[in-house]
Amino acid sequence: MSGTPVSSGAEAGTPVFESSLTDFFQLMKPRVMSLVIFTALVGMVAAPGNLHPVLGAIALLAIAVGAGASGALNMWYEADIDAVMQRTAARPIPRGRVTEDEALSFGVILSVASVLTLGVLVNWVAGSLLALTIAFYVFVYTMWLKRRTPHNIVIGGAAGAFPPMVGWAAVTGSVSIESIVLFLIIFTWTPPHFWALALYRNRDYQRAGIPMLPVVAGDVETRKQILFYSVLMVATAAVPIFIGLGGLAYAVTSSVLGVVFLWFAFRVWSIREGRDSDKAAKQLFLFSIFYLFVLFAVLMAEHAIAAFLT
């Protein structure tokens, strides 16, 4: 890992120090961070019990910073493959705006600070889960699985599924069946979401040498797996109805959106060639984001309204 500043200026060989706070913010993967904040908030609102709003805000901030820290560490480790992928070539390290050493220090400091803050100020179950989330994303997904196996995002997806559990633990100080179900919904949502993206970004992943499922097993197998995991996800998303975590609004939303999700997944499975094939994959990818957002928003609204009325 080079610690020398990368020159991106006009004078070749002259170190240029151009990074700004915006570049460091970009290192934290703000879009991923926003999804983490949202799912963690759902976990906090759905959890039984009370947490002082100030402590709740601190918990959310710590979870967001922890997610951002793991994003920075991911970018530090993957700088070489980010540089050759169209989707990631504009990130701060490949563009030479932040050095790898800077990203590493930034990620480590924020990881430690976020875990300590959550542990000391809220509770250590939540703090430990946040530490596990960061460690899982960095060591298990980024360093171990991503470049080695097409199952990278299946197992690695756990890292993205932890935030509602962390949010839940921030309120209750424990892990329960309900929070595990929230985890499982995101866990089973991740494969169809990412494989849909990988289908139409196949060349990008091939060029970077990442063994995503379409690269290793081919399109047909990927489409089959997308359909399989979509069925599994829709079934998992129905569980809250039966354990009392979701109410009527959730039941209706989960059922309707689940059918639509399966329809998009079926289209990806059945349309295998031509432009329409890429279009179907893109539609599933975009719908999967909408699906998760609405599903969790409804769950949160139900619990927020119930808390307001009691």
């Binding site: 100030v54 402590l55 901030l61 600070a113 803050t117 100020l121």
Partner: peptide, 17 residues
Amino acid sequence: LGLALLVVLFYVATLVR
């Protein structure tokens, strides 16, 4: 600014607790 924010957070959280 980051350190100042951390100090404020710990101070406020201590009062709340």
